[in-house]
Design a protein around this nucleic acid. Sequence first.
RNA 1: GGGGGCGUAGCUCAGCAGGUUAGAGCGCUGCCCUGUCACGGCAGAGGUCGCGGGUUCGAGUCCCGUCGCUCCCGCCA
Length: 435
Amino acid sequence: MTRTLTAELKEKVGEQVTVRGWVQAVRDQKRMQFLILRDETGLAQAVLPKEEPPSELNEAITALTAESAVTVTGTVVADERVKLGGLELRIEGLTVDSLAEPELPIAEDSALDKRIDWRYLDLRRLDRRLIFEVQTTAEHAMREFWRREHFIELHTPKFMGSASESGAELFKVEYFDREAYLAQSPQFYKQMAMAAGFGKVFEVGPVFRANPSFTSRHDTEFTSVDVEISWIDSHEDVMAFEERWLAHVLASVKEIHGEQIEATFDAEVVVPELPFPRVTLEGAKEMLREHGHEAPGAGHDLDPPSERALSEIIKQQQGHEFAFVTDYPTTVRPFYHMRHADQPTLTKSFDLLWRGIELTTGAQREHRYEQLLAQAKDKGVDTPPIQYYLDFFRFGAPPHGGFGFGLTRLLMQMLGQDNVREVTFLYRGPHRLEP
RNA sequence: GGGGGCGUAGCUCAGCAGGUUAGAGCGCUGCCCUGUCACGGCAGAGGUCGCGGGUUCGAGUCCCGUCGCUCCCGCCA
């Protein structure tokens, strides 16, 4: 049997077709039975007159419950009375593939946490599906761009013998007779690819952070998009790549899903102008103070309210939703970020803000072995466990830099969602390991 | 880790200053309804008020503890 999708029905008027999907609603009346069917492409009405006494088919429809999985065979008929596309299916056969229990544990207006408990039911809604269609398009556009520019795709290990970055907490796991850690980032390995002469690399993969963060934009496992580029002159080259790449991604999403995103989430996808605004961290703080906002003191990163305010100011002044904030002090950056030759307390690093939230952290990396050792010592890093990493720079390493990018944060902002959990297939947090 | 808010029916919530048998809408079950389309009408079932302890003649309501959810901060993508 060939399955016809509900979206294809308009081309099949007069034909007998088989549609397979879920029962959205049953309206069982005295003389007429209506069955609203949903598949991944939309909704369709199926209809059957009720016989006296009711036929077996009538009884089967009466017994249906919402969200049951069914296969319906019938003839497609154009009928102006039908508000759902002016089409309906005159039912000739029905198979109940799986009867749903009558009371569903969640409804459209259920709280997010409860919806995640029953995520597979929540995801049956077509607007949730759109989120993952957009994700697919965005990733495809990223790869398209990378391939065009001769990047190599990496799949780095997620088990590690030691920490790859300071700051974020590590998950410890049993690993035979010793302990291992889940990777917080592919940072060291993408740098290894630079030492291996790969030139330009990317990875889209999971990272793990054992931070007990209870906010709308953190999770303990998320999909990180990582890029690393060799033979750069400074972090400026990395930013210049990232903005072109992102503009391409947003243009693709807008072209394919822009209208639907606007209709579904009331969010406009704006393709950004190049170049993105750039401001140094200290310059940003000055801007904030000029506009009457409090800003953290020297040596400190922007706090979230400052980031939101900064995005707002730049939006007003330059009409741009993105902003690169550059030149973070060494105090808030890891040891491997390259320092400015003339200002050794500042790193050649950047963050990318979009509509007030951090999408990216990037930098030029220190590729000179002796300098890297000195910086590790300066930051109090315990070097023996990461000697394998330091060794990457002993036998000829190119100048390089790159960035890490939160895929879910991109989606959240793109779709006007207020929580990364909405755009994560299955959220993982401090108290969430199921489903 | 720190702070704010919350936890009452399958779902979303109400429950005023502690006072008989804890309510509503949606959903569910049954009956009725000539084409519905958020169908409509009538009837019904459904609750150890997160959990434990305390105050009180009496606790959904007040107090303490605990668990969970949520938002903000810290941390970060």
